[in-house]
Design a protein around this nucleic acid. Structure first.
Lengths: 195, 195
DNA sequence: CCCTAATCTTGACAACGCTAAGATAATAAT
DNA sequence: ATTATTATCTTAGCGTTGTCAAGATTAGGG
């Protein structure tokens, strides 16, 4: 017979923690995301999460990883588009994801995770695969002469992604504060990439 | 007669703190930068810094501000260059500053400072002036037909700066890990901006 | 039914940001 | 010269955090 209030063997605490973390992250921001509060939210003791994550950073990596697969999903939905429309939608979708999941995006590409090669190997795999995808995207667009094809695909991929990423960061960090400008900046980015 | 070990009225504690903070930041990283350690380093009590900075964030703003004026100085040194060489050197100087002052650069353009409009007004002034400078740079390059002049200068400035910034972040965050690629990426960035 | 391994709890430690109350020193006023 | 004012620094302490060690509880295989 199961005791009602028994908190032992929660079920799948790991997944529950990640879910709660993503939610908490998006509603209250990174500063509010503490192991202790997370434990409290999921009705478990402060030390419990440490049986599923070595570190806080490992938890953050799991959040980031979830972000990557979600982002991947939104981008894969554009498969049937071609040519210029494709890159336009790609940019728009990318920026939208970043602005709608600010905190998670910051985590995915942020220092907290990547410095001192602190990323989980499983996260590294997902992230690398994400860049590979963009690389093949670029190669295709180069073949259609939509992107600069005087430069190696790797370079074009690196620089264009940097531009996309930089735009998202400046927006998310509140440096390009005016939200009404986002569309215009997206359009200009595309224009400058394809010209 | 002055007591030797008197820690009262340090002299210019505010400046001393900022200096020590910049040093500590660059040597041990942002995580090691605590008010308490800073106080210890400058031989003062833990609460002393709070008489010169309301918050930790205000201290961080001061560090960022110092970074902006230093960066401004390195960029002003390029005044006599023209045309394509100018933009090349500009990019190179910008990236070099970012990589040589990683932690400070991250602070300058990072969330920690800008979110929730948490920047000091004096920092906001310096930063805004920095963008204005880049804007006029862009206008000049547009006039020489080096940069895209089918788009408003503001947009070109926003996007190109985003590209520059994004590149720096990806490098600093260790996502574009290979340092040997930096030069090539700089060159490609310029190529894509001017093409 | 018991044993092992997985899982969770309690209790504690050090470090952190920050505050309140009081001590000390420089400065200005008398 | 003495006093009052103000700026500056200190000591003591609160609440929060990440993390660990030791022990309690439970699930599942022999």
């Amino acid at each position: 017979m199961k005791a009602l209030k028994s908190h032992y063997h929660h079920g799948d605490l790991r997944a529950t923690l990640v879910e709660a973390a993503v939610r908490l992250l998006e509603t209250e921001g990174i500063d509010a995301l503490s192991i202790r509060r997370l434990a409290e939210l999921t009705g478990v003791s402060r030390a419990a999460p440490y049986h599923h994550f070595q570190d806080k950073r490992e938890l953050l990596c799991a959040i980031a990883e979830a972000g990557f697969v979600q982002q991947e999903a939104t981008l894969t939905a554009l498969e049937d588009l071609q040519g210029r429309e494709r890159i336009e939608q790609f940019v728009h979708t990318y920026v939208s994801f970043a602005t709608q999941h600010r905190e998670q995006y910051d985590l995915m590409y942020g220092r907290e995770i990547w410095k001192n090669s602190g990323a989980t190997t499983s996260l590294e795999v997902v992230a690398k695969q994400c860049f590979k995808r963009w690389l093949s995207e670029v190669t295709a667009l180069q073949a259609q002469s939509i992107l600069n094809n005087n430069l190696p695909a790797v370079r074009v991929a690196q620089v264009s992604w940097a531009a996309l990423h930089g735009l998202c960061r400046l927006i998310n960090d509140g440096i390009y504060a005016d939200d009404a400008d986002i569309e215009a900046m997206e359009a200009s980015l595309v224009a400058m990439l394809v010209s």
